[in-house]
Design a protein around this nucleic acid. Structure first.
Length: 669
DNA sequence: ACGCCGCGTATTTTT
DNA sequence: TACGCGGCGT
């Protein structure tokens, strides 16, 4: 097989098959190309059957892209059976096969982060109604799960009353999940690991299924994900991981970039290959990026370089205030667009989602098409949660949380008193809510009216379960929407016509999503579709945005892995980046990596803007330019004079900084 | 059961 | 400023 279009280190990375391999892939160094070529190499040259190769990514989007590119390289025939998925989907696959070993029943549900939060809130409410604590407890439980600490251990190890309390909630939470035949996101990784540790013969079966493992964005793995990797590899050590410690920006979420170091310990034969040639950006942009990230400590020395020329200066735009900043950026984009640059070549990146507002407003006012990624996630919307809860309760009759969510949505006149009685009765019977709906003992405890309403609901639910056997998930969803008169209900509960329309559009999108999913799935049973759906965020659904020509708006985090010819990093101020709540040494380092990720998104031109004053919570505050600007090499910057001493408009003019003002005038005139 | 008011809070968020 | 939530009033 010819390894076309690969440089020497890339070639090495592809051909290193016998030993475990760590590829340190700098930004824009062609890591996806390496992974896909390596898969092709494994199949064509090393004799691996495609179904024995597993590639793992963090996002569905990355998995899709990799699948697509591997498919192009190999052709349909050769790629047949190749498995590329997210970590969580891998965990789900394992659980779906092995759930019985762990005490779960077929059709188990997955709680998303919000469900889990609600669940914890309820459990905690009993003895501690402090709202602040909920997120903290959820975070703690997640940490425990990542470190494989059982509730009992956590309780035993608790060092203070807070931890004791949290451990008690953890215990109750796990019991609740078990009882509902449900798992959370962390369980999808933790449970397979626990199972593999307890039952080596099951692990052996999985090692037989996966002969070669590739992991993308390795710097983002947490402790339990790494453990899963190690277990699956076993002695065979057929492993390639690709990552970049400089792009580790999820430590706050539990990612452990030090897993890169551990890899060297755990795999003494590890071959480390560095990809340092960047094919994305101009040399100037890379010099700026290198200088900034150079202020962080490093495990491995790595220096990105580019064969592209210097290119344009990196521009620094000081602005009087946030309005002015948005104005300058938008005007600049419009000006460039009319010189022939398509809208989609521009990206506006910021630290926090709220910073998009001004830009949205201005872009709308100027009729510039834009697309915004992020904000309230699709799957968190109430209409989506309602419908998926219906699907969940149909697929998994034990899913108490789903039942509670929809039993009176839309209104069925099943009120709080009825539910309380139902809950007490079910608890007394040690059975799930959904399984006692018809019981005679319950009838005794309810009023005639409540009982009738409840029976009507229970009968309807059973009818849907029967129908679910005979029809596909998409038709079932349509049937539900129809029978529930869900659109009417949305209309009645929405505050405005506009909101109602957008919610209905979301419902439509969900339906088409389910349609797509069942086409892709090998075994499109309802329960499999529902769990898969929970692992998706529909934000990434927008494959259609590639075709649409619009300015892209997103956070630095969301931009990881993407590239644009013209990038604007806006709000580049102290307390924004680095964020005011990340002031310790480690925090600053992660913020610096975040800045690095932002900088390295740019192909041709990078513009960094900051405001000197900004409206925050209704009041005007003073801002300082980010310390990261001062870290950049002055000779590659244009307009950086402003960092130390602020210039008056006259001085600005003197130094030829008024091109934006000219543009503005031009557009106004 | 619903709606309104006032208070408190304000990152990033792959699954 | 804005939004979401809890409490309270109808």
């Amino acid at each position: 097989m010819k390894l076309q279009h690969l440089n020497e280190p890339q070639r090495q990375a592809v051909m290193t098959v016998e030993d475990p391999c760590l590829v340190l892939a700098g930004a824009g160094s062609g890591k996806t190309r390496v992974i896909t070529q390596k898969i092709a190499w494994l199949i064509r040259e090393s004799g691996y059957r495609p179904e024995k190769i597993r590639a793992v990514t963090f996002t569905n989007k990355a998995a899709r892209e990799m699948k697509q590119r591997a498919g192009e390289l190999l052709g349909k025939q050769e790629a047949r059976g190749l498995r590329i998925s997210t970590f969580h989907t891998l965990g789900l696959n394992i659980l779906q096969r092995e759930h019985a070993h762990l005490g779960y029943r077929k059709g188990f549900s997955i709680l998303d982060a919000r469900d889990a939060e609600d669940c914890i809130a309820e459990l905690q409410h009993k003895d501690n109604p402090e709202a602040e604590l909920i997120k903290q407890t959820q975070w703690r439980i997640s940490q425990w799960k990542n470190d494989f600490i059982t509730p009992k251990q956590a309780l035993a190890d608790a060092e203070n009353s807070l931890e004791q309390h949290q451990a008690r909630v953890y215990l109750a939470y796990q019991e609740q999940l078990q009882a509902c035949n449900a798992v959370d996101f962390d369980d999808l990784i933790m449970l397979p690991v626990l199972l593999f540790r307890q039952q080596p013969e099951v692990l052996d079966q999985w090692r037989e299924r996966i002969h070669y493992l590739l992991v993308d964005e390795y710097q983002d793995t947490n402790a339990s994900q790494y453990e899963l990797i190690k277990l699956l590899c076993g002695m065979r050590q057929k492993l390639t991981v690709v990552g970049d410690d400089d792009q580790s920006i999820y430590a706050w979420r539990g990612a452990r970039p030090e897993n890169i170091r551990l890899l060297q310990q755990d795999f003494p034969n590890l071959k480390v290959i560095k990809l340092e040639q960047n094919y994305r950006s101009t040399s100037r942009i890379l010099r700026v990026a290198n200088r900034v990230i150079g202020n962080n400590p490093h495990l491995f020395d790595k220096k990105l370089w580019s064969a592209a020329g210097d290119g344009d200066f990196v521009r620094v735009l000081p602005c009087r205030n946030d309005q002015d900043e948005a104005q300058q950026v938008v005007v600049d984009i419009i000006g460039k667009h009319f010189q022939g640059t398509p809208w989609k070549h521009f990206a506006i990146l910021y630290r926090g989602n709220h910073q998009s507002r001004l830009y949205e407003k201005l872009l709308r006012e100027h009729s510039v098409p834009y697309q915004i990624t992020g904000g309230t996630a699709f799957f968190e919307r109430s209409e989506i949660k309602d419908l998926t809860a219906y699907l969940r309760i149909i697929a998994n009759p034990e899913d108490d949380r789903a039942l509670l969510r929809i039993i009176n949505t839309p209104r069925r006149e099943i009120g709080a008193t009825t539910l309380k009685t139902l809950g007490e009765y079910a608890a007394w019977r040690h059975r799930n809510l959904g399984l006692v709906l018809h019981e005679h003992g319950l009838e005794q405890k309810l009023s005639r009216k409540a009982w009738i309403n409840l029976q009507r609901f229970a009968d309807w639910l059973e009818e849907k379960r029967r129908q679910a056997e005979e029809m596909d998930a998409m038709s079932l969803t349509r049937l539900l929407i129809d029978e529930l008169a869900y659109e009417d209900w949305l209309r009645n509960t929405s505050s405005s016509q506009k909101q109602a329309e957008s919610r209905m559009a979301n419902v439509e999108e969900l339906v088409s999503w389910i349609g797509n999913l069942q086409k892709q799935q090998e075994e499109p049973t309802l329960d499999r579709l529902v769990t898969q759906l929970t692992l998706m965020s529909i934000l990434e659904n927008s494959d259609d945005d590639k075709s649409s020509d619009s300015v892209q708006l997103m956070t630095f985090h969301a931009a990881k892995g993407l590239e644009f010819p013209h990038v604007y990093l806006v709000g580049f101020e102290e307390d924004s980046i680095p964020h005011f709540q990340c002031q310790d040494e480690e925090g600053i380092q992660e913020e610096r990596r975040l800045a690095y990720v932002g900088i390295t998104r740019a192909e041709q031109q990078l513009t960094i803007s900051y405001a000197q004053t900004r409206q925050k919570y209704g009041e005007v505050i003073q801002c300082e330019p980010s310390r990261f600007i001062a870290e950049m090499p002055a000779e590659d910057l244009e307009g950086a004079e402003h960092c130390s001493d602020r210039l008056s408009p006259e001085e600005k003019k003197e130094r030829g900084m008024n091109h934006l003002d000219n543009l503005k005038a031009m557009l106004a005139g």
